[in-house]
Design a protein around this nucleic acid. Sequence first.
RNA 1: GCGGGCGUGAUGGAAUGGUAGACAUAUCGGACUUAAAAUCCGUGGGCCGUAUGGCCGUGUGGGUUCGAGUCCCACCGCCCGCACCA
Length: 877
Amino acid sequence: MSRYDTKTIEPKWQAAWEQAGTFVATRDEAKPKYYVLEMFPYPSGRIHIGHVRNYTMGDVIARFKLATGHNVLHPMGFDAFGMPAENAAMASGGHPKTWTYDNIDTMVEQMKPLGFGLDWSRMFATCDPEYYGQQQAMFLDFMEKGLVYRKNAVVNWDPVDMTVLANEQVIDGKGWRSGAEVERRELTQWFFKISDFSEELLEAIDGLDDWPAKVKLMQQNWIGKSRGLEFAFERVDGGDPIAVYTTRPDTLMGAAFVGISPDHPVAKALAAADPKVEAFRAECQKGGTTEEALEKAEKLGLDTGLTVRHPLNPNWELPVWIANFILMDYGTGAIFGCPAHDQRDLDFCRKYALPVTETFVPEDTKLAPKSILDAEFVDGDIAEVHGTRYFRLHDQAYVPPKTERVRWINHFAGLDLATGDEAIDATIAVAERDGWGKGVTNYRLRDWGLSRQRYWGCPIPVVHCEDCGVVPEKKENLPVELPFDEDGKPIDFSVPGNPLDRHPTWRDCACPACGKPAKRETDTMDTFVDSSWYFARFTAPREKTPTNMDDAKYWMNVDQYIGGIEHAILHLLYSRFFARAMHICGHLPKSAIEPFDALFTQGMVTHAIYVTRDENDRPVYHFPEDVEIHESGARLGATGEEVEVIPSAKMSKSKNNVVDPVAIIDQYGADTARWFVLSDSPPERDVEWTAAGAEAAFRHLSRVHRISAEIAEGGDTGTGDDALRRAMHKAIHDVTMGVESFGFNAAIAKLYAFTNVLAKAKASHAARREAIITLAQLMAPMTPHLAEEIWATQGGEGLIANAPWPKADESLLVEDTVTLPIQVNGKRRSEVTVPKDLPKAEVEKLALADEAVVKALAGGQPKKLIVVPGRIVNVVI
RNA sequence: GCGGGCGUGAUGGAAUGGUAGACAUAUCGGACUUAAAAUCCGUGGGCCGUAUGGCCGUGUGGGUUCGAGUCCCACCGCCCGCACCA
């Protein structure tokens, strides 16, 4: 009997698929098309077991769709621009281009033995000039349609290296290499006008029926539509009024101060005249640009000495403060602070001794007069004195949901009991009636800054001309290619800053408008641009235009997109924007403006970390192969030292817990790796790689292989054909459901169960042969090599990859009798087996006659009797 | 800080609001073997009980329901994102 020899089996079938062109996609109007795509990898160097999981899921879908009669497109490429290539060049003196293409070669070589059903003929990398040249062409189209513009924006500035830093390169507010305190600095940058699409991108989320609800919710919150009031505070000194935007105009009577951003024009004007203000602005510019850093930073304020008049009472003057937590990018860059109903404002006002005024109190309370002592407020903000409940603020701002009714104090629109939403409406109405403000809709979504001051990215194809200004490059001059050399030598990346900026010749060019000598733009594009349209490019990857409309019409949309949850917002939102922009420029049909019909977000593959401590109590990480697991705990194989096990940690080179797919394939074969990454956890959740789990997967596949070999040797073993066929059709049904609903782990559990039945089945040779062939077909999307091998062993024609998916015989799925649990007051007490169509009344009779029920009733009558046909009986006493 | 998610035996997990723990792993017991490996059979949430069986049990505390792992509220813990990481 032949053993399960993956080293022979797997390359054999991979060669067979390649020779047959099984996965090469060509347009065929006669068949329904199916486009399945996994988020393409960054060529970091080696493939990761996480990639294996991602692509295996896609491959299961692709092979399943092929078997169900679809014309499948399942391509692969590389998201190849980005910082790590430059970092590698900086660290070891190579070139980003060489590093990247070497990595791509390695990774392709590592992916092929996994047997993915990919159309490799469509592969490209985003750093191919053929790709980024088309991207530049689209950029010019976007410019023409007014979708691109320039403005100032803040970046992380390293004052020692004199260079812009990515957020990732800012560690605890310091530059990663120089260690210098990072500053926020303004730079003129290129932007895509994604904010023009805020409403459309928000509304269209409703139509994304096959996206996870959590992703849709995150995108909605990110776009952040809000309704509010815009108005201006008159300055007492007669200067330009200060415009503010607020989502809580109902709290206007609780205003304590007006706050402006350190980057607000008024703040800048004051700073020009007053070094104290300038020093404060400089203080505010310390640290990185992330919203997290800004939000967590200590709240700082500076009283400008300016005052403004309250719009509802000209005698009420409010101080103007500069505050570091106010963003110039959102609203008008100025707010009014209402400490009673906003925690951040409350903290600020307590810190700077500004007054706190409630504008509303809980419905069943009164505002506490001063005469009620603090001591009465034993439990937070409410005190009860002589039967009356009084409210007064303490440490927490009072922020009830806007849909909750509250009691208003001195509301100028005459409200008494009303919800926040009603009060906002009333306030906006009054402001509009009296002409001092207007209701506006605002979005949190900001325009997409795409400029990067780095080398390894797609050059922005514009030219700066002294006479003509910013001029788009001519399309016939595309691609604007990155230079490989400078002064005849490969570019030196050991110097901080953008090599394009200091390149001796690359910048020099002729102005596309007037022909005079001019300078190229040296900013390159954000790598998110590259990944925002690659899915469209896969439909016609060699086209001399960004897309081919016929191909795009045929293949788009992506029917199933699969990738990590970490891309839930940015990548997916940018792609949705890009599809719309491409449609406007004639590169995609209208039908493709929502490019991903269905989205699935898969979890990570994790692995335990093994740690010991050195003499200074610093952690020492050990490779799994150096650790022995005993019942009493884990120990180092060499020394017997006890090892701490941290389960389910993200794989990381520095923690020595990375599982290399290449080693796994070598040890067990690709099918085992594929089977394991699908089997133990639901695909949306993290799965922990364990040696025992991989071993178990391998044992199971060996067992299936062995069963096939036994059956091939023939012989009838009994007469249980009927039971085996029932189990088989149940398996067909369950596995089909599992695959269609991304329940891969559940599908695999059903395959285990069916295998157990088949292994023990006493049945005719014909029935057993039918069962093993069906099992192979059901396993084929997950373990395609083993499936082909069994198919061939059992004399199947052609390739199993092309065989039609088995169909479940519905008549064999239904049982004649069902066993119903009988509950008494919701607790299971007994059960009764009845014919499946037994009328409800009969079931009730049987239930009431049940020994346990009779005992529980003790002669009495049940209060209620619930019979759910085919499910359960509940007797309520 | 803000937004989103997750939490079930020793372990990974299963379960259209309807018998919690399918399937797999560890463990333990047995068969086969001179022996081991492989394989096969059984055991496999906790407590009590020889057993039929009983009580408890899905992070914690409350709620809705005839019935809650599942729905709602609060809390705790962990994970993801926060616009220049990909």
